[in-house]
């Protein structure tokens, strides 16, 4: 079977390396890849956001399984497009990727189904957000609703910082449409950990636990 890994970072190189160890796999492509994936597999010069280009490549090469690394193609609907073309792909559908693509969606989902998380409110007006911040005080976290390359979460120690965060996200629009709405959320303390699990829509298979060490400690 031929496998295509979508992405070009360390995550994708580790997927290429891992997938290559499977006796079922005869060839691994990586789009766009890096030097490591070129050495262990074959790079394909297609951008991760060029969904049509990736689908065409998948059809041409008769790819048996595509694995998506980064979030942006997932939120753009790469999984839906591959499935519509009859290609097997591992990743969240566009509607499922909302769990990463919209913080408003996810906080509301957690509230509705009683998944433990910090208290929050959603705002589409900067003035309302600032009024709420004044009421609840700090420390507090201001999050842009949409994807912002990991920069849309601002931890604020003072009301002034929180008001500035609202300004940057909603008025200055530093993250574009991602800042049409904000979540103002409880600042949680403790120790961070990552918990990953496979799911097929019904069953849940946990991976081993892990912990990320961020470039800095603010989030």
């Amino acid at each position: 079977m031929k496998v295509l890994i979508v992405g070009g970072g360390g995550r994708e190189h580790s997927l290429v390396w891992m997938v290559n160890q499977s006796p079922k796999v005869e060839m691994v492509f990586c789009a766009p890849g890096n030097a490591g994936t070129a050495i262990e597999g074959e790079n394909v010069d297609i951008d991760v956001e060029d969904i049509n280009g990736l689908v065409e490549f998948g059809k041409k090469e008769v790819i048996g399984l595509t694995v998506v690394g980064p979030e942006v193609p997932l939120t753009l609907g790469i999984v839906d497009a591959f499935e519509a073309a009859g290609l097997r792909i591992f990743g969240a559908s566009k509607k499922a990727a909302e769990i990463e693509g919209s913080k408003v969606f996810t906080k509301r989902l957690m509230a509705k189904y009683n998944v433990p998380t910090g208290f929050f409110e959603v705002f589409d007006s900067p003035d309302d957000a600032r009024a709420y911040i004044k009421e609840v005080g700090t420390p507090i976290v201001v999050k842009a609703d949409g994807l912002a390359a990991g920069k849309g979460v601002i931890v604020c120690q003072t009301v002034q910082e929180a008001n500035e965060a609202v300004h940057i996200i909603m008025e200055e629009k530093r993250f574009g449409d991602a800042g049409d709405r904000v979540v103002v959320e409880e600042f949680l303390t403790g120790e961070e950990a990552s918990f990953l699990a496979f799911s097929d829509g019904k069953n849940v298979l946990p991976l081993a636990t892990s912990q990320d060490h961020k470039p800095n400690l603010r989030r």
Partner: peptide
């Protein structure tokens, strides 16, 4: 339940206290 069946890897960023 929301009509968005989740297939793939789900990653939860947690704070433990």
């Amino acid at each position: 339940s929301e009509g968005r069946p989740y297939k793939g890897v789900l990653y939860a960023g947690l704070m433990i206290e």
